[in-house]
C-alpha cells in the first residue's frame, strides 16, 4: 500500500517539475505552439518529443517484464477500436486546450504557480468530468 502511494507521489512530483521546466505551465507557451499558422513556438514539440523518447524505451522494458517493480500486475489499456467517442471527445478537448492554453497536467501543476487561476480551471474541469458521469451514468 505504501509503495502504491509513494511511487505515484514521486511520479507526479517529477511530472510536475518536468512540466514547469518545459514551460508547459505557461499558457502563452502552449498557445504559442498551437499558433501554427501565426507566431509559432515549437517548444511543446521538444517537450513531447523528449517525453515520448523516454517512454518508448520504458515500453520496450515493460514488454520484457512479468509484473511491475512495486505492484502485482500491469493495468494497461488494451483497446484498439477507433470510435466516434474517441474522435469527438479528443476534438472537444483540443478546443478547450487551445482556448486557455491549459490541459489537465499543467492545470494541476499551476496550482503552485497561479493558485487562483488554476483553481478556477481545475474546478471547471472536474465539473465537466462530473457532467459526463452524470449524463452517462456510473461508467
Amino acid at each position: 500500500m505504501m509503495r502504491e502511494t509513494l511511487v505515484p507521489l514521486a511520479s507526479g512530483t517529477i511530472f510536475g517539475a518536468g512540466l514547469t521546466i518545459g514551460g508547459m505551465t505557461d499558457p502563452a507557451r502552449v498557445r504559442g505552439f498551437l499558433d501554427l499558422f501565426g507566431d509559432w513556438d515549437p517548444t511543446l514539440a521538444f517537450v513531447m518529443g523528449g517525453a515520448v523518447l523516454v517512454m518508448a524505451l520504458a515500453w520496450t522494458m515493460q514488454r520484457k517484464m512479468l509484473r511491475p517493480f512495486f505492484g502485482d500486475g500491469f493495468a494497461l489499456p488494451d483497446r484498439s477500436d477507433i470510435t466516434p467517442r474517441l474522435i469527438g471527445g479528443s476534438a472537444l478537448f483540443g478546443i478547450g486546450w487551445a482556448i486557455a492554453g491549459l490541459c489537465p497536467g499543467p492545470s494541476f501543476a499551476a496550482l503552485a504557480i497561479a493558485p487562483a487561476s488554476a483553481a478556477i480551471f481545475v474546478t471547471a474541469m472536474l465539473g465537466g468530468m462530473l457532467l459526463v458521469r452524470l449524463v452517462e451514468g456510473q461508467g
Partner: peptide, 8 residues
Amino acid sequence: AGVIVGVG
C-alpha cells in the same frame, strides 16, 4: 475552457 477540457 476547463469545462470543455473536462468533458472532452
